[in-house]
Design a protein around this nucleic acid. Structure first.
Length: 478
DNA sequence: TGAAATGTTGGGGCG
DNA sequence: ACGCCCCAACATTTC
């Protein structure tokens, strides 16, 4: 008789689900399993955790639900704290593990860690695809190089293979061997990590994720194409955190959108699917060029003369630039751990271009507060906005924070929600309170410089300054 | 997945 | 009736 396995299924914060989880399913087909989550002090030391309050909250909620979902299948999530690199070989030995399975990571940190661990183990470690629609580093142009333009990448991805159907949940899992049960620790709670719970964040976990997907499919995807840019309307999927933590697999989302009977709304479905391909594009770029997390994708941006004015940086972070749409985005981030995609683009453009502040500052600020904060996606987004990324917008494309507001928040809902001190201003002036006549300001109860700051920079002058600086820098660096 | 400057066209007012 | 100007609307170019 074939010897049965005792498989360690290592859950790692980007695949917190039991549905469409290939490592779990494969492990469950053959022998005993030990589902494991490691609370590595690299992330979970209170001093570090406190710097990521929003993601930590969502993560812990998702882990708790994973734990109860595994329990309902007859298993348990074993939680152990310690550095994973030294812990893994120890646990494998102590628990009599015969093989280790997990999902493959793309981030340089995870790649290095996994390579070190795989090398140090006495048993095989198998990493499964599943983080992306298509494995990064595999789609290549005719010349054999990575794609540097999105559209051909997107065509190649669609042509490469039909996105396969999600795998089912395991039907049932055996009990965890007692030797592993003995090492089980409590899942840490937010308060222990020195974080107070933020009631405005999305709720983590697989069931909340399913509910969000259902809502999107039933009510929003049909108008996604036109609605997604409207700042004040709930027209986007709001699935970014679920994708980031893997409470939904990306192919589950892909297939459920693809299979919708959209009846004349095919364009919306296609637009949304393209966004999922953008995600793959960003992962693929990071896979091939891991250094982009530190330096611009385009070498010509090296040494760009950012101003990095500390007062302006503070004003931008805190939503006090005097440009209502910019401030709305900045405040939405701090309060809810989420920013509407259009607002991400506008605020990012403003930081880099109007204020000439290094995109990496904005990038790390977003990564700190976004619940969906993901190294690859966030970096790609910021480099795109700054103009130095892979298939980025050209440097001379400068968003006008006034007209962007008028276009994408015509009724002023978004601004009024996040910048309530301006809520009584008429639509006409809500994106440019400094232009409002004194009696209008007075009637709205706004005194500039008292209730709301005057604009930090003048749009036209700031735009021209950026164009001058960028043109001059890029002309000398090629 | 822009915006602003510049160029072109065509209708209408008016001398 | 005609040319001229104005200017809005649209198109093209430039950053």
């Amino acid at each position: 008789m074939k010897e049965r396995h005792r498989t360690l299924v290592w859950f790692r914060g980007k695949d917190l689900r039991i549905a469409d989880h290939e490592p779990l399913l494969r492990a469950a087909e053959d022998g005993e399993i030990v589902p494991l989550f490691i609370f590595d002090p690299y992330f979970f030391h209170p001093l570090r955790a406190r710097k990521l309050p929003h993601r930590m909250q969502f993560l812990l909620e998702s882990i708790r639900e994973l734990s109860s979902n595994l329990a309902s299948l007859g298993s348990r999530l074993i939680c152990v704290s310690g550095p994973s690199v030294t812990l893994m070989p120890e646990l494998v030995k102590r628990w009599g593990i015969t093989r280790v399975v997990a999902h493959r990571w793309t981030e340089p940190f995870g790649r290095t860690r996994d390579a070190r661990i795989a090398e140090s183990l006495s048993v095989p470690m198998t990493l499964y695809e599943g983080e992306t629609l298509h494995p990064p580093g595999t789609l290549r142009t005719g010349k054999g190089t990575p794609y540097s333009v999105f559209t051909p990448f997107s065509r190649a991805l669609r042509k490469a293979a039909r996105i396969s159907e999600p795998l089912p949940k395991p039907k049932g899992l055996g009990a965890v061997p007692s030797v592993a049960m003995k090492d089980n620790e409590e899942i840490p709670c937010l308060e222990t990590l020195g974080i107070s719970r933020n009631p405005h964040l999305q709720v983590g976990g697989e069931s909340a994720a399913r509910a969000r997907l259902k809502l999107f499919l039933e009510q929003r995807v049909g108008t996604y194409c036109v609605g997604r840019d409207q700042l004040g309307e709930p027209a986007t999927s709001r699935l970014s955190a679920d994708i980031k933590f893997g409470t939904l697999s990306v192919r589950t989302i892909w297939r459920s959108v693809e299979e919708l009977d959209v009846k004349g709304q095919g364009e919306s479905a296609e637009t949304f699917l393209n966004e999922l391909i953008w995600r793959d594009f960003s992962y693929s770029t990071l896979w091939d060029r891991p250094e982009v997390l530190r330096v611009p994708f385009r070498p010509s941006w090296k040494g760009f003369p950012w101003r990095n004015d500390p007062e302006e940086w503070r004003a931008w972070k805190n939503g006090q630039t005097g440009y209502p749409v910019i401030d709305a985005g900045a405040r939405q981030l701090l309060e809810t751990g989420f920013v509407h995609n259009r607002a991400r683009m506008i605020t990012a453009s403003f930081l880099c271009k109007h204020l000439l502040i290094d995109y990496r500052r904005g990038e790390s600020h977003f990564l700190k507060y976004l619940t969906d904060g993901d190294w690859a996606q966030n970096n790609a987004g910021w480099q795109w906005s700054a103009g130095c990324g892979c298939d980025a917008q050209p440097y001379f494309r400068v968003f006008n924070p006034i007209t962007q507001g008028a276009k994408f928040d015509p009724a002023g809902n978004y601004v009024r929600r996040w910048v309530p001190e301006l809520k009584h201003l008429p639509n006409r002036y809500i994106y440019r309170p400094w232009d409002a006549p004194p009696d209008v300001l007075e009637k709205a109860g706004v005194t500039l410089g008292v209730h709301y700051p005057p604009p930090l920079v003048e749009h036209a002058a700031a735009r021209e300054r950026f164009l001058r600086v960028a043109k001059s820098h890029l002309s000398t660096t090629g």
